[in-house]
Design a protein around this nucleic acid. Structure first.
Length: 804
RNA sequence: GCCGGGGUGGCGGAAUGGUAGACGCUACGGACUUAAAAUCCGUUGGGCGCAAGUCCGUGCGGGUUCAAGUCCCGCUCCCGGCACCA
């Protein structure tokens, strides 16, 4: 019995409260590995629980992933759709500095608020699987991975100039510096020479690049990673000094232009400079070095005008024994290649500029394929000229020939270089995972034994970073002072902590077995659930988190923890939600708070509006009036059910066909991530249906609505007389036979110009359609006095009468 | 400079090479109401026309095609990324 006499109005508060409670009680989203069913792992990039809470922009990704999770669940998959907290990080620590409250306290408070807000979404998270990167039982394994890397020689300590953010008071990875500024706070970064922990991500450069092509990721992100890794093929060539047998090495991708090298350049930091500089040039050289070292990277980038100084020394070009001057300039970078170049001004933009400024010779050695020397600098491939016995070789052949000949002399080697650098992994801050290393006067650097993990953070009174490159932990005597695990003598702990990325590099693994105390996760569970099938998050992590996590995963593969190289099979980047064209943020004061919208319109309305706002991968402008339209839509759905159930409407062929068309459209569009047009499809369906429809249609409609409007769908399911959750039903499959239309509307064109349309039965012949078309005034008008040349008919779509 | 992505009504946006503007918002008109809100119905790319109709229209200029928002060539503007990586 589903008939009801009295229509009720849609009450989102009551409905949503009721179903959220029911879901918790029934625990229908509680999942377990079940090898008899296919799995789907749908992951959101977990948030940093900030003090400002969620805004409607955060909702966008979470709704999208929940739609997919519920869709897959209805298709019979065992779905893992977890949520957790990336809770180490500077805001909590800065807050602690200001107020003296331990970061874990404010973090817990923020998590509670986030969790409450996330509940409002009505997503099918299994909260038993919640993780928190600051939980010692979690970061034990973050430290454990570091230990494994150390054992494999992938974690090492080095004194080197690194990027340092004066505002965050900590060193940064290259990936965290954007245009010379700190990725987090926007301050200009400085160079500081500090003892650093580094991870050898460069050892994985080739693999990180190579397997990009296996990923179903947005092209944009793949390109960004590719250019970040920055592979180039070239050669290392040794040059001898003119007046000694000392040598230095340059890296070049254009060994074919070696005959055009008219000077050499060393980076100002190059250690060879001190040995070769002549006394006459010494003063100039020293002051140039000092000046360039004092420049921040932002200054160094800002002015592209070439500067430099001659060292007074000369090198010998190995192919022609020519004596060429050695200069120093900051346009050569110390940390790429060998920090030294051979300059070929005729065939390199930068060398050309430099040669113009200092009036150095420019000698073309590459001509175009016709043998003409084009305007300089000519940086493309061509044919070698002025190159002795190599003349007339093509660029590619010239490279090979010259490198091969020099290699025989033992002074050249073909090599591959990467722009990507090793990962600066230590932070001089408190609120992060302590690096599990102990320093002993006798034994040196010693790993903390795995059995002693996790190394917890001590309680401190002062969270203030020292700013001297030491972490606040250094001041906590009874924490720093320990004993050497190897010899037992007094020793000191490493006081640097890990960057925030450390915990997020592997978190996707922990969700499959979050409480495991013996292992990172149970191998069987890892095998069943991972890798992640769909990963949803913002594009801002394109070369940070996503690169680091790929690196960690490859390492975990190598030590046998996982059996794949790539953690995230498919990636979807949702667009931002903007207000007045700018990104929502607390500091700009343009945040739209979802809490009030949920209160006013309900979670289902907000969910659908988040989808309807625009193509999910594109940024979208928030409009208050938009959610009104969606709210009206939901009420219309509600009213359709209420009206239909107070009368009895029989199903017809037409209604069945209509329903199958909806199934087909919705399924197709979800698969294609065109979620805004899924909403349109429902709206169009509703316009078509009219005031009432049959029960069969209503049941299908309710299920199809489930992924987008789960509370509403459950309630509709119940008023249809069903007693179990709608999410235990199956996603309907469209019957192709029901998609065949009885009548079709065929557009009529005359010479390619649309003149109207005729509606005919689907089996009408071309002749029938043409005859029907001739009845249209507009068709007759445009054919008047003309001769029909040919007629093109695309069945069911268009009839084009070509006339002259 | 290099690499991506894009430019369609008043707005957000739809369109496997096949009736451009679905769907929604806004605005306007109407119904209901004492009135308003809500709801429902209608109109809503521009021009001409009483109408039938007709001309123009997807950043600009060419091209391919029976047919182009969609494909090709050249430009232009906007957004994002990288940027002295030899």
């Amino acid at each position: 019995m589903y008939g009801r006499d009295i229509m009720s109005t849609y009450n989102h508060k009551q409905i949503e409260r009721k179903w959220r409670q029911a879901w918790e009680e029934n625990q229908i989203y509680k999942i377990k590995a079940d090898s008899s069913r296919p799995k789907f792992y749908c992951l959101d990039m977990f948030p940093y629980p900030s003090g400002s809470g969620l805004h409607v922009g955060h909702w966008r990704g979470y709704v999208l992933s929940d739609v997919w999770s519920r869709y897959k669940m209805l298709q019979g998959y065992q779905v893992l759709h977890p949520m957790g907290w990336d809770a180490f990080g500077l805001p909590a620590e800065n807050d602690a500095i200001k107020r003296g409250i331990h970061p874990s306290i404010s973090t817990d408070k923020n998590i509670a608020n986030f969790k409450r807000q996330l509940h409002e979404i009505g997503a099918m998270y299994d909260w038993d699987r919640e993780i928190n990167t600051t939980d010692p039982d979690y970061f034990k394994w973050t430290q454990w991975i570091f230990v494994q890397m150390y054992k494999k020689g992938l974690a090492y300590r080095k004194q080197m100039p690194i990027n340092f953010c004066p505002s965050c008071q900590t060193g940064l990875a290259n990936e965290e510096v954007v245009g010379g500024e700190c990725e987090r706070c926007g301050s200009a970064v400085e160079k500081r020479n500090l003892q650093q922990w580094m991870l050898k991500i460069t050892e994985y450069a080739d693999r990180l690049l190579g397997s990009l092509k296996t990923l179903d990721w947005p092209e944009k992100v793949l390109k960004m990673q590719e250019s970040w890794i920055g592979r180039s093929e070239g050669a290392e060539i040794s040059f001898s000094l003119a007046d000694s047998d000392q040598q230095f090495v340059v890296y070049t991708t254009r060994p074919d232009t070696l005959f055009g090298a008219t000077y050499m350049v060393l980076a100002p930091e190059h250690e060879f400079i001190q040995q070769i500089t002549t006394p006459e040039q010494s003063k100039l050289v020293q002051s140039y070095i000092e000046k360039s070292l004092s420049k921040s990277s932002i200054e160094r980038m800002a002015s592209k005008e070439k500067t430099g100084v001659f060292t007074g020394a000369y090198a010998i070009n190995p192919v022609n024994q020519e004596k060429i001057p050695i200069w120093i300039s900051d346009y050569v970078l110390i940390d790429y290649g060998s920090g030294a170049i051979m300059a070929v001004p005729a065939h390199d933009d930068r060398d050309y500029e430099f040669a113009k400024v200092f009036d150095l010779p420019i000698r073309p050695v590459i001509a175009d394929l016709n043998g003409n020397v084009p305007d300089l600098p000519f940086v493309m491939d061509g044919k070698l000229v002025n190159s002795g016995k190599y003349d007339n070789l093509l660029t590619a052949d010239g490279k090979k020939a010259i490198v091969a000949d020099l290699a025989n002399l033992g002074i050249a080697e073909a090599t591959v270089k990467f722009k990507m650098r090793d990962w600066v992994f230590s932070r001089q801050r408190y609120w992060g995972e302590p690096i599990p290393i102990i320093y002993c006067d006798d034994c040196g650097e010693v790993l903390v034994p795995e059995g002693e993990l996790p190394i917890r953070l001590p309680e401190v009174d002062n969270y203030q970073p020292t700013g001297t490159g030491e972490s606040p932990l250094a001041a906590i005597e009874d924490w720093v002072n320990t004993t050497c695990p190897s010899c037992g003598k007094p020793a000191k702990r490493e006081t640097n902590t890990m960057p925030q990325w450390a915990g997020s590099c592997w978190y996707y693994l922990r969700y499959v077995d979050p409480q495991n105390l013996q292992a990172i996760a149970d191998p069987n569970r890892i095998k069943y659930w991972t890798p992640v099938d769909l990963y949803v998050g913002g594009v801002e992590h394109a070369v940070l988190h996503l690169l680091y996590s790929r690196f960690y995963t490859m390492f975990l593969h190598d030590i046998g923890v996982v059996d794949f190289d790539e953690p995230f099979t498919r990636l979807f980047n949702q667009g931002m939600v903007t207000k007045e064209g700018v990104k929502m943020s607390k500091s700009k004061g343009n945040v739209v708070n979802p809490d009030e919208l949920v209160e006013h319109y309900g979670a289902d309305s907000l969910r659908i509006y988040e989808l309807f706002i625009g193509p999910p991968e594109v940024d979208a402008e928030w409009m208050d009036s938009g959610i009104e339209g969606v709210y009206r839509f939901i009420q219309r759905v509600w009213n359709l059910f209420e009206r239909s159930l107070t009368t009895t409407v029989a199903s017809t062929k037409e209604s069945e066909q209509r329903t199958h068309r909806l199934i087909a459209t919705v399924t197709e569009r979800i698969e294609a991530f065109k979620l805004n047009t899924v909403v349109s499809a429902f709206m169009a369906y509703l316009n078509e249906v009219g005031n009432t429809t049959d029960k069969q249609s209503l049941e299908t409609l309710a299920i199809l609505l489930g992924p987008m409007a789960p509370h509403l769908a459950e309630e509709l399911w119940q008023i249809l007389g069903r007693t179990s959750s709608i999410f235990l039903e199956s996603w309907p499959v469209a019957d192709p036979k029901m998609l065949v239309l009885d009548q079709v509307t065929v557009g009529i064109q005359v010479s390619g110009k649309t003149r109207g349309a005729v509606t005919v039965s689907a089996d009408a012949s071309q002749e029938d359609i043409q005859a029907e078309a001739m009845t249209l005034t507009s068709v007759r008008n445009s054919l008047d006095g003309k001769e029909v040349v040919k007629v093109i008919y695309v069945p069911g779509r268009i009839l084009n009468i070509v006339a002259r």
